[in-house]
């Protein structure tokens, strides 16, 4: 799906836990996330800490979208 969005001309960042799969499907901007059932959260944390974690991840995704890339790039958090 990321590839089709990219093909349409819209920059897209893929946030996912299993980044090798993201590489296989051809995402160009990739941000690794926490875990499969809760990519952008961690139920073990307090509500405040979990929100801060999500904010950090989405901030990284926005950085990825505003960074020029020439090839598939993983933006480590």
């Amino acid at each position: 799906m990321v590839k089709e969005i990219e093909r349409a001309g819209i920059p897209v960042v893929h946030m996912c836990t299993v980044t090798p799969i993201s590489m296989t499907v051809g995402a160009n901007r990739i941000v690794p996330t926490i875990a499969i059932p809760h990519p952008l959260g961690n139920p073990a944390l307090s509500k405040e800490d979990e929100y801060a974690l999500r904010k950090k991840l989405v901030t990284r995704a926005l950085e990825a979208l505003s960074t020029e890339v020439e090839d598939q790039t993983i933006f480590e958090v």
Binding site: M1, V2, K3, E4, I5, R7, A8, G9, I10, P11, V12, V13, H14, M15, C16, T17, I21, S22, A27, T33, I36, P37, P39, L40, V58, A61, L65
Partner: peptide, 26 residues
């Protein structure tokens, strides 16, 4: 199927003037 879904809604996003997409996967 996934290809077809995204190809279709990407056009809707374009028409709506969306500049970028965050796609999340589990």
């Amino acid at each position: 199927s996934a290809k077809k879904f995204a190809a279709e809604y990407a056009q809707k996003l374009l028409q709506a003037g969306v500049n970028a997409v965050i796609m999340t996967s589990t």
